[in-house]
Computed example of a mutant assay.
Amino acid sequence: MADDNAQAFQIGDVEVRRVVEWQAPFAPALDLVPGLGAEVWHDNREALAPDHWDPGTDHAVVALQTWVLRSGGRTVLVDTGVGHGRERPGNPAFHRQQGEGLPARLAARAGVRPQDVDVVVNTHIHGDHVGWNTLDADGAWVPTFPDATYLLPAPDDHHFGPDGEYGGGLRPDDRFTYEDSIAPVHKSGQAVLWDGEYRIDENLTLEAAPGHTPGSSVLRVTSRGEHAVFVGDLLHSPVQILHPGHSSCFCLAPAQAAASRQRVLERAVEEGELVVPAHFGGSGVVEIRRHGPAYAFAHWTP
């Protein structure tokens, strides 16, 4: 199983570096992507095992990771992982987690200090994408990156915030997540809410891709004729490339998520974009091609 903690590559003038929090079997495969039979996983064993599926336990393998982009002289983080000491009673894997923190990993594997970060992109507001937005300073949550602008999708901020009753109170983790990882960034004045489309710089553009959450988004990178799309949680497993109509068990609006996924994957094929999901193990990056009504793996990046 690959663990490319210091993987780096270029998209034109944009340098991309991957910083992995962890990679491991996470959930039963048939539970993660409901509606897909066991034969889909077994028939694609060569492509899925061991980086995306553990046949021994029949669990899907996922990674938690932050992508560090250097674009136009600025440092941009895409998602910030789980964080330490968080109350996440609905998910034992995230609850009160300890270990090496993101600041230490960024320093060791990307040469980035908290004060070096200019922009933090949260593709959506789930606990495993916003956890290191903040850290505990003498009992108070404060922004981890003191000079950064935090880009938050406005529909998610409404849905998961107090105006949306913290996701309608369906999951206690949502309220904890907002209060410890989002509210402090608003309080510090570093949050910028956006909707629809947001241009970060000449190379980087955020676009709405709702369904997984109301504000789920993708980040497109275009530089010197090269292209990539960071798709967040539109994809949890490569089986969703083969069967894009199937959403994960974590998607709040599965049909809408499937429509967003179809649209984003179709454009990736048409424009030759590298596809960079939030949770893929292995190299974490794949090129895809059209295959009948769906898609197939053209090439996994080394």
Rank of each mutant, 00 (worst) to 15 (best):
E266G: 13
A278I: 04
C249Q: 14
V231P: 02
A253T: 14
H227N: 13
F230R: 02
H246K: 13
Q256E: 15
L234N: 07
F250Q: 15
S260C: 02
P254K: 07
S260Y: 00
G215K: 03
L265A: 01
H236Q: 04
R263W: 01
S217C: 11
G232F: 08
H246F: 15
S260R: 01
V264D: 00
F250R: 14
Q256D: 15
S248A: 12
R224P: 03
Q240D: 10
V264L: 02
E226N: 07
R261G: 04
L234E: 07
P214R: 08
R267Y: 04
A268Q: 00
H236D: 11
G215H: 04
A228I: 05
R261F: 05
H227K: 14
Q256P: 03
S248D: 13
V264Y: 00
L274M: 14
G272I: 08
V231Y: 03
S216K: 08
P244A: 10
E271W: 10
S260A: 13
V218L: 04
G272F: 03
S217R: 08
P214Q: 11
S223R: 07
L274H: 11
L265H: 00
A258F: 04
A228S: 08
A268F: 00
A255F: 06
A268R: 00
V218K: 01
S217V: 07
V229M: 05
A259W: 00
V276P: 01
L252A: 14
R263F: 05
P277N: 06
P244R: 03
L274A: 11
V229I: 10
R224L: 12
T222P: 01
P214S: 10
D233F: 05
D233S: 10
P244Y: 01
A228F: 10
E273I: 02
V218E: 03
S223H: 12
V264F: 00
L265V: 01
V239R: 01
L219Y: 10
R220P: 04
E270V: 12
E271K: 11
A259T: 11
S247A: 15
E271G: 07
F250W: 15
V221S: 03
A255V: 12
S237T: 15
V275W: 04
A228L: 09
A268M: 01
V275A: 06
L265P: 00
L234A: 09
V231K: 02
L219H: 06
G225K: 05
H227Q: 13
S260D: 01
L252K: 10
I241T: 08
R224Y: 08
C251F: 11
E266R: 11
C249W: 04
Q240P: 07
C251H: 13
L252N: 09
L242D: 09
C251K: 08
A253N: 15
R224T: 11
R261N: 09
E226T: 09
Q262K: 12
E266S: 13
S248P: 02
V218P: 02
V231D: 02
H246Q: 14
F250Y: 15
R267G: 05
P244T: 08
A258K: 05
S216M: 14
S247P: 05
L252D: 13
P254L: 10
V218N: 01
V264E: 00
G245V: 07
R267C: 03
A278R: 04
